[in-house]
Lab assay of single mutants.
Amino acid sequence: IEEVKKIVSEIQSKQLTRITINGNTYQVNSPEELVEYVRKVFS
């Protein structure tokens, strides 16, 4: 979970619009959307 928080804060600070998780690239339009992807991947 700490690793996830680190990734999320990194993305928020860079305002990235794409994230790659487990080889899948997602278009991310908002931090909320990012959190949803993270929940799916780590749930």
Rank of each mutant, 00 (worst) to 15 (best):
E36D: 12
I1T: 12
K14N: 08
I11N: 01
Y26M: 09
K6E: 07
N22I: 04
I19P: 02
S30F: 07
K14E: 04
V41W: 12
I11K: 01
Y26T: 04
N29D: 12
K5I: 13
V4W: 14
K5Y: 12
I1V: 10
E36V: 05
V38W: 04
G23M: 02
K6G: 05
K40F: 12
S13N: 11
T20A: 05
V28P: 00
K6P: 02
T17M: 05
V35Q: 04
E36F: 04
Y26L: 13
L16A: 03
V41P: 00
E3C: 15
V4F: 15
S30H: 06
K40I: 10
E10N: 06
F42L: 12
V8W: 05
Q12V: 14
G23H: 04
P31Y: 10
E32M: 06
N29T: 09
N24A: 11
V28S: 15
E2I: 14
V41N: 06
R39V: 10
I11Q: 01
V4P: 04
E10H: 07
E2F: 09
E33C: 12
V41Y: 13
S13W: 07
I19S: 00
Y37M: 15
I19L: 06
I21G: 00
Q15D: 04
E32R: 05
Q27T: 10
V41G: 03
I1P: 10
I1G: 11
V4Q: 07
S43D: 12
E10C: 14
R18A: 12
V38Y: 04
P31R: 01
V8H: 01
V38T: 01
Y37E: 09
Q27H: 07
K40W: 14
I7W: 11
K14R: 10
K14A: 06
N29G: 15
I7S: 01
V28W: 09
K6T: 07
R18S: 11
F42I: 07
I7M: 08
S13Y: 09
K40V: 06
V38H: 01
P31L: 07
I19H: 00
Q15W: 03
F42K: 02
E2W: 09
E32S: 07
Q27A: 11
Y37Q: 10
V38F: 06
I19K: 00
V38N: 00
Q12E: 09
S9W: 13
V8N: 00
V35S: 04
K14V: 04
R18C: 14
K5N: 14
Y26A: 04
Q15F: 06
Y37T: 13
V41F: 13
I11F: 01
V8K: 02
S13L: 13
E3P: 05
E2D: 12
R39H: 10
E36P: 00
Q12G: 04
V28L: 14
F42C: 15
V28A: 15
E36W: 06
T25A: 07
L16N: 01
P31F: 12
N22W: 11
L16H: 03
I7F: 06
L16C: 14
E2L: 09
T25S: 10
I1W: 14
Q12D: 03
T17W: 05
E3Q: 13
I19C: 05
N22P: 00
S9A: 14
S13T: 11
V38A: 01
V41R: 04
K6M: 10
S43Y: 12
R39T: 12
G23Q: 03
Q15A: 09
N29V: 06
E33T: 03
I19N: 00
E32C: 07
K14C: 13
E2P: 07
G23S: 03
T17F: 09
I11E: 01
N24V: 15
S43L: 14
E2M: 11
E33D: 07
Q15G: 13
V28F: 15
Q27G: 03
F42E: 03
Y37F: 14
P31C: 11
S13H: 14
Q12P: 02
S9K: 14
E33Y: 02
K14L: 10
K40M: 11
K6Y: 08
I21A: 00
N22M: 10
K14S: 08
S9Y: 13
N24S: 09
K6V: 08
V8I: 15
E33G: 07
T25Q: 06
K6D: 07
N29M: 10
E3S: 11
E32Y: 09
V4K: 03
T25R: 04
R18L: 07
V35Y: 06
K14D: 03
L34W: 04
E10D: 09
E2N: 09
V41K: 06
S13A: 12
Q12L: 15
P31K: 02
